[in-house]
Design a protein around this nucleic acid. Structure first.
Lengths: 132, 132
DNA sequence: AGTATTTGTTTAGCTAGGTAAATAAATTAG
DNA sequence: CTAATTTATTTACCTAGCTAAACAAATACT
């Protein structure tokens, strides 16, 4: 069995756990952060836009948004098309965003700091080649 | 935000889903395969040996083994030390192992075939560098 | 206009990972 | 030898991903 898969899955789990650990101070999970970051960059988005962008299935986003809404990070508003819900960052999220981003940047620097820019590019290229 | 993490997490999810898809014909999930493979290589193992080897937490393995046991893939036997349970592959698992391994090898060839041996090595080295 | 299909979201139910805490057996300390 | 601590497993409960199917609103078809 090719050890690449094992190594890839392990590292992915490891990094997720580290990220969760670091985000605890902001009361966030890494996946929640991903959504906040997405909304911060793109502005208000429908659920469909979010799950297509993040490349996950719709139910995962429905649940994640429900939790983020309950925690006060996002607002869910009906769109003109009455089927769709539009999600926006709450003022609370906007206010706290810079501090969280700072945490994230420090984390990334720590985790990826050992790789040069070329290595990072190379890594992305190799990742890209792994598909069916 | 460094796109490396997003790319890594996405690829990890993608490959897991592909592997699950391919293993459907054997009525297995990728994580279950990982455990069967582990047992096949090492012979009988305690739960602790398994979760330490696979680098996950104990409860994940307890649950996975319970399912594998119910499906008839493994047997759970008391050890001499009455605290520990020893897990072994069932005859059914031994019998089916070669066919599953064939499926896995084909999958790996398809997914990693675009990378040369040097690229695979390079990939592992870069992965290794990503830690705190 | 009325029906059929598509689209956006949600619900239900599954595996996989995590932490915290319970339990039981083994080991160590006094 | 009893009490305290450690070790192996399990239970309870959380997030995150998945598929399948339900539902309502919008669109397309005839």
């Amino acid at each position: 069995m090719n050890p690449i898969f094992h190594a890839l899955f392990q590292k992915s789990r490891y990094l997720t756990n580290c990220l969760n650990e670091v985000l605890k101070q902001h009361n966030l999970y890494s996946s929640q952060w991903t959504i906040l970051y997405c909304l911060h960059n793109h502005g208000p988005m429908t659920l469909t836009q979010i799950w297509k962008y993040l490349n996950v299935e719709a139910p995962s986003i429905t649940r994640a948004i429900t939790r983020l809404e309950n925690l006060g990070w996002v607002l869910r508003v009906d769109g003109e098309d009455k089927r769709e819900k539009i999600v926006t960052l709450s003022p609370y999220a906007e206010e706290n965003f810079p501090a969280i981003k700072k945490t994230i940047l420090a984390f990334e620097k720590e985790m990826v700091g050992a790789l040069t820019d070329e290595e990072q590019q190379q890594f992305m290229i190799l990742l890209e080649k792994m598909k069916g």
